[in-house]
Amino acid sequence: MLLSINGLGKGYDSGGARVEVLRGVDLALDPGETVALTGESGSGKSTLLHLCAGLDRADTGRIEVAGRDLAGADDATLAALRRQAVGLVFQQFNLIPSLDVGANLAFHARLSGRDDPAAIAALADRLGLGGLMRRYPEQLSGGQQQRVAIGRTLAARPALILADEPTGNLDEATGDAVLDLMLELVAEAGAGLLMVTHSPRLAARLSRRVHLSGGRLA
């Protein structure tokens, strides 16, 4: 099992009151499986995703990624997990502004030690970025930036891809094209995908859909 979540709970202090965002979430995800995570704004979708990536720590419950329990892991272990096993795609793309497209694409792969220039070049062509390799992020359109972000993740060949509304910043046509590409590449890589979206239309295109409501998955 790629991702296993049991009884996950997480809350925040907000203005003196404790807000329990997640109240016992259970989820399992196998390799090759693509899961859409939907829910109202503020229902805790991003929080759940961040917990899975080891960006944040759970209050209760258990998360295992690729068989490793995140609860007891230290900063360095979590950082290694993000380098090696997990790929993140953000709504804001979050490219590294100081690096050009080529360097951004290869960045995660090289951090994880799985750098394969030929594969990356091929990937860039697949993503339609072949002519943009020397450009800098700020010189790209939103769709182009998101394709770089997806490419950066896929180039590192993580087992688990976590995507947070990856097309949320794109218009519908561009978003659809980017999503198509992403699903195609995920399928090719045999990776697992957990994608946050609030669009039922997009959710329907994934293999499974879970809905987060009242701090629990349904």
Partner: peptide, 13 residues
């Protein structure tokens, strides 16, 4: 914003 992605991609603080 420039550092967060690098962190997210696997560098410790």
């Amino acid at each position: 914003p420039q550092l967060a992605p690098v962190w997210a991609l696997g560098l410790t603080r």
